[in-house]
Simulated scan of single mutants.
Amino acid sequence: MWKSCLAVPLLLAALLVPLEGRACATCACGDPTLTSMGTEQPFAGRLRLANQVRAWSLTTGQDAVDAVSLRELRMDLSVAYAPLPWLFLSATLPLQTRSLQQVSLARETAWGPGDMEVGAKVFVFRDRDFSADHLIGVLAGARLPTSPTVHDAEGRPLSLDAQLGTASLDPYLGLSYSTFRGDWSFLASATGYLPTRGREGFRAGASLRTTFAAQLQPGPRWAVRLAVDGRLEGPSDLRGAADPVGSGVLAFVSPDVLFSPVTDVVVELGVRVPVLNLLQGNVRQSPILQASLVYDL
């Protein structure tokens, strides 16, 4: 009998011990919008993992004269963590395979890690702490010189265009604005890059990259997104000699479909279609196919 009497208060005491609460990302931030990596609402302790795969090609020069074709398949492994409700820290490591073919059919192939990117997004304004309708963030970070120099079978370095990165330190600074209106959400961002000199004395041109996107989410599990992505890039130079090829303006229309098969998982499929090409040097950009998987831990 005394054992039974003792068991009751012990059971009650065990039930009253507070345990750590866990909630899905939607519950924690109060916003059910499906978001790709980098466009989410923050809350302290939010941790996101992402894997994005992209495939594209680029041709420079005149066909049958001096054309050079570049093809790339790239997988970006990303992690983002919010130690504070107003701060997101992120890192992205690209794994790439590249093939460069000359008009003579000579080919160079490289594969391995590219230049890693690290950054921070500081939310300087939100209209309310929970389920914000308006967010303004400042982005700052850099691409790091993590790509190794790739050599051919004879031990000679591949050409600069065949390398997996510039191996330069490229800082960037940007500004983003997001608003959420029921089934609709909108995003506008602009980011400027200022590359430094890297491998073989090459320095890419300073660039400005912009995104304007609208998203409609009719249901809790899927959404459609349409964006206009733009890039304005200055001329590059090699050991002080200016090279205008590839500089100018390039714009894409980017339709995407987002789907959440289970809680805290977002799958995104899309394509970036070039619609405006004002690049110097007869540069032709193919559509960019992309697929990504995002998981909130």
Rank of each mutant, 00 (worst) to 15 (best):
M1R: 14
W2L: 15
K3C: 05
C5A: 14
L6M: 12
L10G: 02
A14C: 09
L16E: 13
A23G: 15
A25I: 02
T26Y: 05
T35Y: 02
T35I: 02
G38A: 03
E40T: 12
E40R: 11
Q41L: 15
R46H: 11
L47Y: 11
L47I: 10
L49P: 04
A50C: 08
A50N: 10
N51V: 12
T59V: 14
Q62P: 03
D63V: 09
V65P: 01
D66M: 12
V68C: 03
L70K: 05
R71Q: 11
E72N: 12
L73N: 13
M75E: 14
D76G: 02
D76P: 01
V79L: 04
Y81N: 04
Y81S: 03
Y81C: 04
Y81K: 01
W86I: 02
F88R: 15
L89W: 05
A91R: 00
L95C: 04
L95E: 00
L95W: 03
Q96V: 00
Q96Y: 00
Q101I: 01
Q102R: 14
V103L: 02
G114Y: 01
E117Q: 14
A120P: 08
K121A: 09
V122C: 02
R128W: 00
D133Y: 09
L135C: 10
L135Y: 10
V138S: 07
G141C: 08
G141A: 12
R143S: 14
L144F: 11
D152I: 01
E154T: 12
R156T: 05
L160A: 10
A162C: 05
A162K: 02
L164C: 00
L164G: 01
L164V: 06
T166I: 05
A167V: 04
A167L: 06
D170M: 13
P171Y: 07
Y172T: 07
L173K: 08
L173D: 04
G174P: 06
L175T: 03
L175R: 13
S176R: 06
S178Q: 15
R181T: 06
D183T: 05
W184Q: 00
F186P: 05
F186H: 10
S189W: 02
S189P: 01
P195W: 09
T196P: 06
R197D: 05
G198E: 08
R199D: 12
F202M: 04
R203A: 11
G205M: 13
G205H: 13
G205T: 11
A206F: 11
L208E: 06
L208Q: 09
L208A: 15
R209W: 08
F212N: 09
Q217P: 08
G219P: 03
R221V: 13
W222Y: 11
A223R: 08
V224E: 03
R225F: 00
A227N: 04
G234H: 13
G240D: 09
A241G: 06
D243E: 14
L250S: 10
A251W: 11
A251S: 11
F252W: 15
F252P: 07
D256Y: 04
V257P: 06
S260P: 03
S260C: 05
S260G: 14
S260K: 02
D264Q: 05
G270D: 07
R272C: 01
P274E: 07
V275H: 06
N277M: 12
Q280V: 13
G281H: 11
N282I: 04
N282C: 09
S286Y: 02
A291L: 02
L293Y: 01
V294P: 00
D296E: 13
